[in-house]
Amino acid sequence: MVCKAAGMPWPYAVRLRSDRLVLEPLSIEHADVMVNVLAPRELYQFTGGEPPSAEELRARYARQVRGQSEDGTAGWLNWITYPRNGGPPIGFVQATLHRAAEGMTADLAWLVTPSTQGHGFATEAAQQAATWLHSIHVQELNALIHPEHKASAHVARRIGMHSTTISRDGEVLWRKRLAAMDKR
């Protein structure tokens, strides 16, 4: 699926499944359940900010579900992560797509709520998104990770990303070329 707009269309997020998770494409209705997922203050230790209200999430999600930036230069893919066996959401995965001379790239981000951390859910969700992004011909994954955020660095490493010497706004750029992506 693609998001039609001025210029070339962007892909739409589709429902993804892994062994233990379902990644459901974002909708505005997710705001009411995600407010609890995003409530723990420790989630903002490395990124700054504070927990959003349901109203703030509804406004954010209304922008994100458009599937692209206002000027159409970036595509937005957002998934809410649920346990496959049911229950409330546990996090999200985001990919911001960009067009480059060598093909599409994606800035990838992931989050799981503290009560579900340490069980490999962030890795599983990020890997599922990375595999799907490769299937739609994304050539490179990028992630910005705070140098002290060991858990996110672990996820990046587990999905085959490597840290670079590039730093942006105090975060280290991690990267993976998908042309040689292994099929896990």
Results as ranks from 00 to 15, higher is better:
175 R>Q: 14
22 V>I: 14
170 G>V: 06
46 F>V: 13
133 L>Y: 00
154 H>L: 13
71 D>R: 14
10 W>P: 05
169 D>F: 09
38 L>Y: 09
30 H>S: 07
93 V>N: 04
141 L>Q: 01
72 G>V: 09
97 L>S: 01
22 V>D: 03
77 L>D: 05
128 Q>M: 08
145 I>Y: 10
146 H>C: 11
131 T>A: 01
177 R>E: 15
138 V>M: 00
75 G>F: 05
149 H>R: 03
102 E>R: 03
166 I>F: 14
139 Q>H: 04
153 A>K: 12
73 T>K: 07
136 I>N: 01
180 A>M: 04
158 R>I: 02
17 R>S: 05
35 V>C: 12
109 A>Q: 13
88 P>Y: 13
70 E>A: 15
178 L>R: 00
41 R>A: 14
54 A>D: 15
147 P>L: 12
86 G>M: 10
23 L>D: 02
9 P>M: 07
122 A>L: 09
139 Q>S: 04
53 S>K: 05
17 R>A: 12
84 R>A: 15
162 H>P: 00
44 Y>V: 08
141 L>P: 01
130 A>N: 01
162 H>V: 14
47 T>R: 14
75 G>P: 05
2 V>N: 09
38 L>W: 10
86 G>W: 07
103 G>P: 03
46 F>T: 02
173 L>M: 11
52 P>Q: 02
26 L>V: 02
155 V>H: 10
33 V>R: 11
123 T>W: 08
184 R>I: 06
111 L>Q: 07
4 K>V: 06
88 P>T: 04
56 E>Q: 08
168 R>M: 12
39 A>K: 12
180 A>Q: 11
40 P>T: 12
152 S>N: 15
114 P>V: 11
178 L>E: 01
19 D>F: 13
59 A>I: 08
7 G>T: 03
93 V>Y: 06
106 A>F: 03
76 W>K: 06
146 H>R: 08
181 M>E: 02
166 I>V: 15
112 V>K: 04
41 R>Q: 14
27 S>K: 09
81 T>C: 15
87 G>K: 07
4 K>H: 12
105 T>F: 03
141 L>M: 03
26 L>N: 03
79 W>S: 03
81 T>H: 09
33 V>M: 11
68 Q>C: 12
182 D>G: 10
89 P>Y: 12
162 H>S: 13
48 G>L: 10
182 D>Y: 01
158 R>A: 11
69 S>Y: 06
158 R>E: 04
60 R>E: 13
137 H>P: 00
39 A>L: 09
81 T>D: 06
71 D>L: 08
23 L>E: 07
165 T>V: 10
41 R>N: 15
173 L>N: 08
157 R>L: 03
148 E>L: 10
124 E>H: 01
132 W>L: 04
110 W>P: 00
177 R>T: 10
155 V>S: 07
109 A>Y: 12
64 Q>M: 14
36 N>R: 11
76 W>R: 05
144 L>Q: 00
18 S>I: 06
130 A>D: 01
55 E>Y: 08
132 W>C: 01
47 T>P: 02
14 V>E: 15
8 M>G: 07
23 L>R: 04
4 K>G: 05
176 K>F: 01
102 E>G: 02
9 P>A: 07
159 I>E: 00
119 H>C: 13
161 M>D: 01
113 T>C: 12
183 K>V: 14
25 P>H: 07
41 R>V: 13
147 P>F: 07
116 T>M: 13
42 E>D: 15
131 T>M: 05
16 L>V: 11
170 G>Q: 13
100 A>W: 03
44 Y>M: 12
11 P>K: 04
58 R>C: 10
